[in-house]
């Protein structure tokens, strides 16, 4: 069992918090893990991505080969399209629909959405609104993780446990907010896949 995940977003959006949650869950069930991150210049509002690979066998490359990714998790709609060459024919796109517009030539949002809809397997989720409804705007990345959770080959309970471990130090309230966000994302994905 191997899952190759591309995480995409804009520098500062915190895609690494999603990676850390998946990573924590993967380690709980003794999977091998490699995760390539972008540090440095692009973190200043540029496009950023992270390659996360989990497997029950040893993993060779830190980078996912093009055409092999099982899922693209993007916290920004245009960024989900940037990495299409990496997606396998059976792979899924799970993307937030809230655009992050920090360039003057950002395309028409409708065109971006149409491009996503041209793909075979996709979930489009307004993670920011869902997080807001739950009363915690900051947990939108956990909503995204929940939406991606059916495709990760990791049980939902293991993901929950990972989140408890990561946020445990910050108290029960923070843990519960993030668990609720995870669940809301999961429910949305189950209904809309």
């Amino acid at each position: 069992m191997k899952t190759d995940i591309i995480l995409a977003g804009v520098g500062g959006q915190g895609i690494l918090s999603i990676a850390a949650s998946i990573g924590m869950a993967a380690l709980k069930i003794n999977l091998h893990l490699k995760q390539a991150e972008v540090h440095g210049m692009s973190q200043r509002g540029g496009d950023v991505q992270s390659h996360l690979r989990i497997s029950d066998k040893e993993i060779a490359s830190d980078l996912i080969p093009k055409g092999k990714a099982d899922i693209i998790i993007s916290v920004e709609p245009m960024e989900s399209l940037r990495y299409l060459p990496y997606l396998s024919p059976t792979g899924w796109i799970v993307t937030n629909t809230k655009p992050f517009i920090n360039i003057p030539n950002y395309p028409e949002l409708e065109n971006v959405m149409n491009e996503i809809k041209k793909q075979k397997n996709y979930i489009m989720i307004d993670a920011d609104s869902i997080a807001n409804e739950l009363g915690s705007a900051r947990s939108s990345n956990m909503v995204m993780l929940g939406a991606a959770s059916p495709f990760l080959n990791i049980s939902f309970e293991t993901l929950e446990q990972g989140i408890r471990d990561i946020f445990g130090r910050k108290g029960e309230e923070v843990v519960n907010v993030n668990l609720a966000a995870l669940k809301a994302g999961r429910d949305f994905a189950e209904k809309n896949r």
């Binding site: 210049m41 200043r44 996912i64 055409g67 245009m78 299409l84 060459p85 990496y86």
Partner: peptide, 28 residues
């Protein structure tokens, strides 16, 4: 891995091309 695959003469299948509407997002 893809560059190395080409050097080894291994056939590869990429996902679909990046759509033309995707703009560069330089750091700022």
């Amino acid at each position: 891995p893809n560059i190395v695959a080409s050097a080894l003469g291994i056939k590869q299948e990429f996902g679909s091309d990046k759509p033309k509407i995707v703009e560069n997002r330089p750091p700022s």
